[in-house]
Simulated scan of single mutants.
Amino acid sequence: MLHLARVRRAAVLAATLTVAMGAAVTLTPVPAAHAVVEGLLDVTVQGPDGSPLSGAGVTLYQANQVNPDPITDPDWHPVVIGGGTSGDDGVAHLAQEIPLGQTVLEVRVLVEKAGYFPQWYQAAANYTNANNVSMSDGNLAEVSVALSQKLRIVDVYVYDPVSEADLGNTTVGLFAVDGDGVTPTLTRTTNGSGVAQFKLGVAALDPNFYRIRATRAGYLDQWWVDPPGSSTNTFDGATSLDLTGETGSFPVNIAMTAGDPVPFAAAPKPTIAGKARKGETLKARPGDWDPIPTFRFRWYRGSHAIDGATAKSYTLRKADVGKRISVKVKGSRDGYVTTTRTSAKTATVKP
């Protein structure tokens, strides 16, 4: 709680000045100066997720003022009477002098920060609809104001027009029109529904025009061209998306053409962890594949597949004694060549 000293000043001056001639002059009494009374207010500023926002401007206006022209000027507000800035904890500590003869000052609060929509307390769009806050001598008033971020939202949907399948695991990149057309400014990956969303605040992406490319294994790279087929599938032929403003919603659809599956960048031989002894459990370790596929496992006793042994682990039994065990790992992922790797065999299993 902020504690501020309040100074009360009172003085009445009455003196008699005796001059050299013996005459007396009486000075007129000076009226007492009124006591300075301050009301205290803490305004907590938060972002959409409830986190504190520093550097927000908090402005106070006297409440209950009349808008002279509410129809054509709904954003009218009276003259500013005070204000401050929120600190690292998101709190602005304000002290406001209360006029002579009053014990309570009614104010309305406006909070503003670059990249966010301005907000009156409490959740109002303008002064007229804002709530009053009472500031009184000797009491601390506390209010909270949550700001909504200004966003440019780009929703990119990627699909296969032949199979009509949603294409998840697709890399979608934003390329500045004045860039090299090779290095994306930002990328996102589509979800299982084939959607990649960019939520772009003022600080997240420079205002500019951008072009969009979708890249996925097993498909040809595709630049966004609107309408489809109206230009070449190149950076220079791609449609430019206007992201120069602070807000907006931009739906983008990209149809991709299937190509040949590509090999995994890395598909190492698996290894087996555990002791080769009856009753012990062996575990398959696939290694670091790139990208990570869906794995399937198959255990072998010598050169023969073991019935039902298709889990990542296998517990050695009587039939394994005197034999050597291995495991095959199959990796599969859309757009990639399905690949199988076989481990080295264990030592002979002991009883």
Rank of each mutant, 00 (worst) to 15 (best):
I98Q: 05
P52N: 09
L110E: 03
G39K: 00
R108C: 05
A63E: 12
P70W: 14
P68R: 01
Q62M: 02
D49T: 14
W76Q: 10
N139D: 06
L100C: 05
D89K: 04
G138M: 02
T59V: 15
H77D: 15
P48D: 14
D137K: 08
K113T: 01
P78V: 04
D49H: 14
G39S: 04
M135A: 10
D69I: 03
A95I: 02
G47F: 05
A63Q: 10
V25M: 14
A95F: 02
L60A: 05
P118N: 11
S134T: 08
A56L: 05
S51C: 02
G115W: 09
V25R: 14
A95K: 06
G87N: 13
D89A: 05
D88Y: 01
T72C: 04
S134L: 10
L40F: 09
S136F: 08
T72G: 08
V43Y: 11
Q102A: 06
E142D: 12
V107R: 05
E38D: 07
L40A: 10
V79H: 13
V25L: 15
G90L: 01
P74Q: 10
P68A: 09
Y116E: 00
G57Q: 13
F117T: 01
G47I: 01
L105V: 12
G115A: 03
G83Y: 11
V109C: 13
H34T: 09
N64V: 05
Q62H: 12
V36M: 08
V43E: 08
A92M: 08
G55L: 04
A63Y: 13
A56W: 03
P52H: 00
T85V: 15
L53W: 12
L27F: 12
L53C: 07
A114D: 12
P74C: 06
N129T: 14
I98N: 06
D88H: 03
S136T: 09
L105G: 08
A114P: 00
P68T: 08
V25T: 15
T26P: 05
I71R: 14
H34L: 05
P29M: 08
V107I: 06
E106V: 05
H93L: 02
W120I: 09
P70H: 03
R108V: 06
S86Q: 07
E38M: 04
L41D: 15
L40I: 13
D73W: 03
I71V: 15
A124F: 12
N126M: 00
I71E: 15
Q102D: 13
G83C: 07
V80Q: 14
V133A: 04
G84C: 09
A125C: 03
T26V: 13
V25K: 14
G101V: 14
G50Y: 11
D69H: 11
V109T: 15
V30C: 07
L140R: 14
P31S: 12
G55S: 09
P48V: 14
L27W: 03
L110I: 01
V25I: 15
L27A: 15
G55I: 09
T44L: 10
S51T: 13
G90T: 01
A24L: 13
L105I: 07
N139M: 06
L40H: 08
P31C: 03
A124Y: 13
N139S: 10
H34Y: 07
L53H: 03
P70K: 00
D88Q: 07
G39H: 00
D89E: 06
